[in-house]
Amino acid sequence: MFEAKISQGSVLKKLVEALKELVTEGNIDVSPSGMSLQAMDSSHVCLVSLVLRDDGFDHFRCDRNMPMGIHFANFSKILKCAGNDDAITLKAEDNADQLTLMFESSNQDRISDFDLKLMSIESEHLGIPDQDYSAEIKMPASEYQRIVRDLTSIGDTVLISATKEGIKFSTSGDVGTANVTLRHNTTSEKQEEHTIIDLKEPVALTFALRYLKNFSNATALAPQVKLSLTKDLPIVVEYQVGELGNIRFYLAPKIDD
């Protein structure tokens, strides 16, 4: 059987909110080492990878590896019934066709349980190699959200260029053009306000803004976001989920025909 308890249930709520617009359904794979998900959007140009480690949970037990086929809009409907301060326990028997979610209020005076129907989903796993990137940029997650939101109102695609001067986001559209440049900045006493640019070589890539904006649905999960760029490879937009794990979004660059 599988059983996992997380006292900070709001994290699970935020994770599903971050995913559900991008991927309709997918297999959450559970194993003794934790929970993971790899899913592509319907057009297969972006991929989300979620890893939640067993030791990040208050309690975690998984006797047998199994995929749990989840419809994320339905998962979201049930998680919306959990209070923000509730502890959430997930439970499933081996080869079950449902996932039980139990919500406990912080003073344990309210307990509710819901069953989510599981689906049988054929999915393929892609091997994503660990690699060095030409540029890695850490910035406040709220800053990333603001940039992609602002630029989406001007254009459809963004050119992201990382140089020793900083990281520049450029777009253009019917109303005109926009450029936002962030410089390396570690002057704040608060680490989450830092912008850290780790540049091995200059790189410039173009991406569809609507996906980058979609990734910012994960903003509530982490104070910082990391962007990783290498020529001709997908950008990685990564949010650390506390001690629990991380969520990474991959988006293919636009290529001139």
Binding site: V45, H125, P234, A252, D256
Partner: peptide, 14 residues
């Protein structure tokens, strides 16, 4: 026009 490749063209299927 700019195109976009599928994720499967960057990462091999396991």
């Amino acid at each position: 026009a700019a195109g976009q490749k599928s994720m499967t063209s960057f990462f091999a299927k396991k």
